[in-house]
Design a protein around this nucleic acid. Structure first.
Length: 496
RNA sequence: CGGGGCGUGGCUCAGCCUGGUAGAGCACCUGGUUCGGGACCAGGGGGUCGGAGGUUCGAAUCCUCUCGCCCCGACCA
């Protein structure tokens, strides 16, 4: 690397928080709005979100869901109907009390989530078991009055999707809850290249009004956990307060079983904190608004003509092959400046195209992170791949896939290297949590007291009671806090 | 809500202590030379210093009030 002429990014290892903020800013993903706690999502950031949306939307449709839209305003009385729900959301509600210059008869809540309005409507639509299941999703914005905010990770208004379903039986609802958690996991692994632990949330971390909450938890590069998506089995709690009833197969009236599940623009923050480095943003190709950028290089006018001609041909070829590609023809920046620019912005592949390449009928491609599957870089240099023009489209496709895979493998290796299994000594756990070691697997008796003790003493919380495939070969026998017999192996970590 | 910090061209900030009506770097515009890892030269445009009030011949600078933002702690996708 050359000496930075522009002020360098804060080092990830020295000030993670400043590093994160600078990446969001320099990659032009988002910025603060004039309103405290809200964010403006800029095209580079929104482009990532759009690709996330497209992939998820497809997956939701494939699992039988339809999109709909419910209103932003919810009568305050609706929120108040479900006791736990109000209790959970009351502190973070934004409430509209005036409209058209007059006090409203009933205050309107700006939705923090839409269970109440949606199930009140489902109640009108459902008569019989034949009307079930209802499988719907909505893409929307929601507002939760937060005290402290971070761009993407926690803002007062954020974008998300919320799936809401109604079923005939508890079992169907549970299957749906788990199916959608599985969809999230697949999406996070395959698109975000982000390994996640899935499992059950403890009672204290449960969604307000749910029977059970499941989540997908990822480990960020500062070894803090990020809850990246949740799926709730709501039981009949909302059905009962909104009269969501149907006539069952045997004739009597029954309450429907609901689920809800959501992921938000928080995932963009998770993406940044999972893959990015001291050179800037790193984006997995499948959610990269730009997969490849072509930087032409030339000196004389004659060179410019031949190089630009070749660059345009390459551009057309890749575009036709379905690659999200850009030709950076700005004449105000030197090639070197463009390299830095696109690196900061996280474009997966950079193509350098100069007179020599035109001569050789080849191109140079530099991947944003180095690929184990390719010729290693010379010491102190970036990995440079020389690719024949004839093989271009195919090689680009395969490099993008390799990059996607490499990112997932790197993230997985990092998570595993920062996971501690079989921890049985509370002192040891405290030490691990204190130095932000990552995920700590330990036994838990199931009591809220022990959970609260740890939270108070270490700031760590139970992220998840992991599904069997994530559990350790040897199950812990005792609760790490109180020493009585262990009910579950749980994963502890400090969280966002 | 408690603690800390900050509001000065688009951005980052200096000037404030020791009042004399604004500066730098970056960015931007024009022209030229450049171009394989952040180019250079020359010329140029742009701010009344968060807001209100006060002190003073004179306020970015001193005083009072006020608004806003950022960071750190208790809640949350």
């Amino acid at each position: 690397m050359a000496e930075d002429k522009k002020s360098p990014l804060p080092k990830r290892s020295e000030d993670f928080s400043a590093w994160y903020n600078e990446i969001v800013s320099r990659a032009e993903l988002a910025e603060h709005s004039p309103v405290r706690g809200c964010m403006v999502i800029r095209p580079n950031g929104y482009g990532i979100w759009e690709l996330m949306q497209q992939a998820l939307d497809r997956m939701f449709k494939e699992t039988g869901h339809q999109n709909a839209y419910f209103p932003l305003f919810i009568p305050l009385s609706f929120i108040a109907k479900e006791a736990k729900h109000v209790e959970g959301f009351a502190p973070e509600l934004a409430i509209v009390t005036k409209g058209g210059g007059k006090d409203l008869e009933e205050p309107l809540v700006v939705r923090p989530t839409s269970e109440t309005i949606i199930y009140s409507m489902y109640a009108k639509w459902v008569q019989s078991y034949r009307d079930l299941p209802i499988l719907m999703n909505q893409w929307a914005n929601v507002v939760r009055w937060e005290m402290r905010t971070r761009l993407f990770l926690r803002t007062m208004e954020f974008l998300w999707q919320e799936g809401h379903t109604a079923h005939e039986t508890e079992q169907e609802a549970e299957e749906e809850t788990l199916r959608m958690l599985g969809v999230y996991r697949t999406f996070m692994e395959q698109y975000l290249a982000m390994p996640v632990l899935t499992g059950l949330k403890t009672e204290s971390e449960r969604f307000a009004g749910a029977l059970r909450t499941y989540s997908a938890e990822a480990l960020m590069q500062d070894n803090k956990a990020l809850q990246n998506g949740t799926s709730h089995n709501l039981g009949q709690n909302f059905a009962k307060v909104f009269g969501l009833q149907f006539q069952g197969r045997s004739g009597e009236l029954e309450y429907a079983w609901n689920t809800s599940w959501g992921v938000s623009t928080r995932m963009v923050g998770g993406l940044i904190m999972t893959h990015s480095d001291d050179d800037g943003l790193v984006t997995p190709p499948r959610v990269a608004p730009l997969e490849l950028v072509i930087v032409p290089i030339f000196k004389s006018d004659a060179e410019q003509r031949t190089v630009m001609e070749a660059a345009e041909a390459v551009f057309r070829e890749l575009k036709a092959a379905g690659v999200r590609v850009k030709l950076d023809d700005r004449d105000s920046l030197s090639p070197g400046a463009k390299f830095f620019d696109w690196e900061t912005k996280g474009v997966p592949l950079r193509m350098e195209l100069g007179p020599k390449d035109v001569q050789n009928n080849s191109v140079v491609i530099v991947p944003r992170i180095s690929l184990d599957s390719e010729e290693p870089a010379k010491p102190g240099r970036k990995q440079k791949l020389f690719i024949a023009r004839a093989e271009l489209a195919g090689r680009v496709r395969s490099l993008l896939e390799q990059l996607q895979t490499q990112l997932f493998e790197n993230a997985m290796a990092r998570r595993e290297a920062n996971s501690y299994r079989g921890v049985t000594d509370y002192g040891e756990m405290k030490t691990l949590v204190d130095r932000d070691a990552g995920f700590v697997y330990a036994g838990w008796c199931g009591s809220a007291e022990c959970e609260a003790t740890v939270k108070e003493e270490t700031k760590a919380t139970i992220r998840v009671i992991p599904f069997p495939e994530f559990q350790s070969a040897t199950r812990p026998s005792h609760c790490i806090v109180c020493g009585t017999s262990s009910k579950h192996e749980v994963v502890w970590a400090k969280a966002y």
